[in-house]
């Protein structure tokens, strides 16, 4: 992991992009990192495009602005590809991770000439299979962790289970489903990473 990793999340109000960013900050904190997780709100309504951000660093984080040159971009809703330039400012050597049943080749034409790494994960199908409803943010969280390498797999699953146990203290029956959603998405992205020609994860 480089010294500071910056991630930008694109979603629609109600899909949990903000929650995913806050959960990622939570687990990264547990692995000893300095973290920021914050939302940017436009109009406050269901379905409106929203952005959320993560900074994950080995040192103090002082900057309090949005992220314009992210290392990674996560797209929780593929319909945003037609209205939002999600890859704007995305750094060379980074990656965009998109929730879609399509292949990276199928969505690339919607990325405004972006030539870097693209990962797709069918977060909706995974969520419906494991949770019985469409909560795409949970599988996306695993996909983002797998692609960015901000923490190792073992730490991620250990800390996220602890986080869910706390978060879902009043409805522990949903914990296992959420864990399965994460495992499926993580495995799918690991497979995709292995297929890529160039190694994606950068070391500091």
């Amino acid at each position: 992991m480089r010294d500071t990793v910056e991630i930008r999340w694109h979603g629609r109000g109600g899909q949990g992009a903000k929650t995913a960013a806050l959960l990622l900050a939570d687990v990264a904190f547990q692995t000893g990192r300095h973290v920021q997780g914050f939302p940017e709100y436009g109009p406050e309504r269901m379905g409106a495009p929203i952005t959320a951000y993560n900074r994950i660093s080995r040192g103090d984080i002082r900057i309090h602005s949005n992220i314009y040159q992210p290392d990674y971009v996560a797209v929780v809703d593929e319909t945003l590809l037609r209205s939002v330039k999600v890859t704007d400012g995305l750094k060379q050597g980074g990656a965009v991770i998109i929730n879609t049943p399509k292949s990276p080749e199928e969505v690339r034409p919607l990325l405004n000439g972006y030539t870097g790494a693209v990962y797709t994960v069918d977060a909706r199908a995974i969520s419906e299979r494991t949770l019985g409803r469409n909560f795409p943010n949970t599988p996306m969280l695993a996909a983002v962790t797998a692609v960015t390498g901000v923490m190792d797999k073992e730490s991620f699953f250990r800390e996220i289970r602890a986080s869910f146990t706390h978060k879902f203290a009043r409805k522990p029956e949903v914990i296992e489903g959420n864990m399965r959603a994460l495992e499926e998405a993580y495995a799918a992205v690991e497979q995709a990473i292995r297929k890529q020609d160039t190694p994606l994860r950068k070391t500091a």
């Binding site: 939570d26 300095h34 973290v35 920021q36 914050f38 939302p39």
Partner: peptide
């Protein structure tokens, strides 16, 4: 404190 910028940002 600054609305959203610090009020809604999770930090150490």
């Amino acid at each position: 404190q600054d609305g959203f910028i610090t009020s809604h940002a999770v930090e150490n």
